[in-house]
Simulated scan of single mutants.
Amino acid sequence: MKTLYGIQYLRAIAALAVVLFHAAERLDENFAIGAAGVDVFFVVSGFIMIVISQNRNQTPGAFLKDRLLRIAPSYWLATTVMVFGAFAGLFPNLVIDTPHLIGSYLFLPVLSPNGGALWPVLVQGWTLNYEMFFYLAFAASLMLAPGRRLAALSLIFGALAVVGFAVTTPGTPAFFYTRPLILEFLAGAVIGRLWLSGRVPRADTGLMLIAVAIFSFTAIYLLRAEFNTFLCAPLAICLVLGVLALEKADMLPTLPGLAYLGDASYSIYLWHTFAISVVLKLGLSAGLPTWLILWSGAVIGTLVGIACYEVIERPLHVFIKHRRIVFRLPGRRVTAD
């Protein structure tokens, strides 16, 4: 698939927003709107799955294997670091519970002994539980003709969202999988279908959509207004659709640095909290100003994520992509992926 720089830029911006959110949250500062980076990630994820599957004749099993190999290794490693860190006393407040730990590795929402919420050992991994659920639903849709896949996804996620209005008990898998947040994947898939059919908005409409999203996110931040999925999801959709409109019109500037951060966004998302925890602890003990601790944590957290991308994620991805299993048959050697 041709590189869509707009999507890369959005992934980068979403990751940086989440980094700032976590740095600010640890210091009781206001940047809650940064959590909306997750909404952008979910819309982008739905878009990417529809687009990359267009010209691939993958079976559901092959698709799930590909997604698992792409997502799981780095996440499992980060989770393992958390576990060993807890045993070593580096995370004294982290309680390790066997059912919760197993659920964390299997991308299942299990009640955490650390606060009682449905988050895994690596807290930000809760979004990956949603990602994997979407991948399962998308894999099931691959059994249908391409023209029926979006309708099937709409039926599945629409029904779950409707059921969600009747599920009011937090802390249960039924509650987790029926939140309106899951509709963001579906929205991204719809945008993907529009992109493939050449029906994204014109550039002027795209600029308007981007302006609406940026203005609204800024207003929420400045006014410290309450927000939820019903507000952030439409804004994330506007942002993604607007950027794709500019992409189609060849109006996006070439920003290699931002595109690179898009490539590294997954590692930044996984690993930044480790660095933020250390920086905040050192900064507070040294009596540094809050603003300096916050920005230092965000910058160093991003740099650590980039380092993990170069040292862990990329080598793992290259190894998995180019691995070969060599075995012998009578009279010849056979090399298979």
Rank of each mutant, 00 (worst) to 15 (best):
G6R: 12
Y9V: 05
L10P: 02
L10F: 02
A12L: 08
E29S: 15
F31N: 08
F31H: 09
A32E: 08
A32G: 14
I33L: 10
G34F: 04
A36M: 14
V38G: 04
V38Q: 07
D39Q: 13
D39P: 06
F41V: 11
V44Y: 00
S45E: 07
F47L: 15
M49P: 03
M49D: 01
M49N: 03
I50S: 03
Q54W: 09
K65H: 10
L68S: 14
S74Q: 15
Y75Q: 08
A78W: 06
F84L: 15
F87E: 06
G89H: 12
P99T: 13
L101E: 00
I102A: 11
S104V: 10
L106I: 07
L108F: 08
L108C: 01
V110M: 07
S112Y: 04
G115F: 06
L118A: 12
L122M: 10
V123K: 02
V123Q: 03
Y130H: 15
E131V: 09
M132P: 01
F138E: 02
A140W: 12
S141N: 13
L144A: 15
A145L: 13
R149N: 04
L150E: 08
S154D: 06
L155H: 03
L155N: 05
L155W: 07
F157T: 06
F157S: 04
L160E: 05
G171P: 03
T172G: 14
T172E: 11
P173C: 09
A174M: 11
R179Q: 15
L181M: 12
L181F: 05
E184D: 10
L186Y: 12
A187H: 02
V190Y: 13
R199A: 12
R199M: 08
T205S: 13
M208G: 08
A211I: 07
A211Y: 00
V212S: 07
I214D: 00
L222Y: 11
L223P: 01
R224P: 00
F227H: 07
F227K: 02
F227M: 03
I237G: 01
G242K: 07
L246T: 03
E247M: 04
M251R: 15
L252F: 00
L252G: 10
L255I: 15
L261D: 02
A264E: 02
S267M: 04
F274C: 04
F274G: 02
A275P: 01
K281E: 06
K281Y: 00
K281H: 08
L282S: 09
S285C: 00
T290C: 01
I293G: 03
L294K: 05
G297L: 02
A298R: 03
V304T: 03
I306N: 11
A307E: 09
E310P: 00
R314P: 01
P315H: 13
L316Q: 14
F319Y: 11
I325Q: 12
I325E: 10
V326S: 14
F327D: 09
L329T: 14
L329A: 13
D337A: 14
